Computed example of a mutant assay.
Amino acid sequence: MAEEKQYLAINWNDIEDQIDKATWEKLTEQFWLDTRIPVSNDLDDWRKLTKDEQWVVGHVFGGLTLLDTLQSQDGMNSLMQNIRTQQERAVLNNIQFMESVHAKSYSTIFSTLNTPAEIDEIFDWTNSNPHLQYKANKINDIYHNGTPLEKKVASVFLETFLFYSGFFTPLYYLGNNKLTNVAEIIKLIIRDESVHGTYIGYKFQLGFNALSDDEQAKMRDWMYDLLYDLYANEEGYTNDLYAKTSWTEEVLTFLRYNANKALMNLGQDPLFPDTAADVNPIVMNGISTSTANHDFFSQVGNGYRLGQVEAMNDDDYNFD
């Protein structure tokens, strides 16, 4: 009779990697739900936007919905195939759930601001836009066919770089004191993504540092080639998305800045010359991951008060 395989209970009192525990605690402190944000309070602002502005906002969130769907349905499952610790799986489970919360949050915004016909048009556009489909399929192919390290790179590029063509819009309106509750949802999502990208980047660095010099060089070449390819596609997507505005170049600057942040998460050198000083200061002010105070039970204010959560800063990307 074959000997049964031993199944191990997870033991949070015996931590192999303290980053797992610290990340779990940070993520659970940050827990939030879209249903607690009073998006309907933004209806007056919404009605004052032009039709072109409303189109951009709706389609921005359509694209973000697709990427968060990819991350929740394929991304985290892919990363779970190559974990180092049991606690890492628990952290990835948490991330996977919150990615689903993020995707649902956009539907909360749609159902509040848009008509059923508008929502149908947004999803039709999202599911057929060639640039949006290209990046989703590019990342998804890596999730299903890439090496463990390549999957982590794809995840960090998605969370810390590709989302930001969409994040620009609500942060811009927030800086102009418009759609503040919609923007609060985005700030909560950015706060989550900041931790996700940092944590997965850290796990990448553990594996990358164990490679030989030749293997590191090949991995680095692959990584930068992927980023060049994704950025070239993102230029096309940004032109599609922002054709009705004058923001295209500002969005691309914001994207390049966040591409460098993604590389920082992965322990690599920046690719683009753009820094925070080059980004529209209104948007940079909005990107702060702190949120306004919000009473979880009574929907007062715009933020959450579920534990004291600090904003991420550049030092958080350094795990030496």
Rank of each mutant, 00 (worst) to 15 (best):
F208G: 07
R191H: 03
L226V: 07
G197R: 02
Q205N: 08
K203F: 02
H196L: 05
R220Q: 13
D192Y: 03
D214K: 15
T198F: 09
W222K: 13
L226R: 09
M219D: 03
A210V: 09
G207W: 04
F208Y: 14
N209S: 12
Y199N: 01
F208H: 02
D192H: 04
V182D: 00
D192S: 01
I185T: 07
V195Y: 08
L227C: 07
W222F: 11
N177Q: 13
G207H: 01
T180M: 11
N176L: 11
N181F: 13
D225P: 07
K187M: 00
I185M: 08
F204P: 04
L227S: 05
Q205H: 07
D214I: 15
K178F: 12
V195C: 01
T180I: 14
I185K: 01
S212L: 09
D213A: 15
E215F: 08
E215M: 11
S194C: 10
N181P: 06
A210D: 11
Q216Y: 05
L227E: 08
G201F: 05
R191Y: 05
D229Y: 11
D213G: 10
G207M: 05
L188N: 04
S212V: 03
V195G: 02
N176M: 10
R220N: 14
Y202S: 04
R191E: 05
K178N: 12
R191P: 09
L206P: 02
A217R: 15
Q205D: 02
N181A: 09
A210E: 12
M219G: 14
N181H: 15
N209M: 03
G201H: 01
N177H: 12
S194Q: 06
M219Q: 11
D225Q: 14
D214A: 15
Y228K: 14
A217E: 15
L206I: 13
Y224N: 00
K218R: 14
L188E: 00
S194K: 04
D192P: 00
D229A: 12
I185L: 09
S194W: 05
Q216G: 14
L227R: 00
E193L: 00
T180R: 10
I189N: 01
L179K: 08
N177C: 00
T198M: 07
M219Y: 03
Y202G: 05
R220P: 03
I200R: 05
L206H: 10
V195T: 06
N176W: 10
K178S: 15
D213H: 15
L226A: 12
M223K: 10
M219F: 11
Y202K: 05
Y228I: 14
N177S: 10
F204A: 07
G207N: 06
I189T: 01
A217N: 14
L179A: 08
R220Y: 13
T180H: 04
H196D: 04
G197M: 03
D221S: 13
D229N: 11
N181I: 01
T198C: 08
A210Q: 15
I189Y: 07
N177Y: 12
N176T: 14
V182Y: 09
N177R: 10
D225Y: 06
L188G: 01
E193R: 02
L227F: 12
D213F: 14
Q216T: 13
Y202T: 00
E215L: 12
E215I: 10
T180K: 13
K203Q: 11
I200H: 01
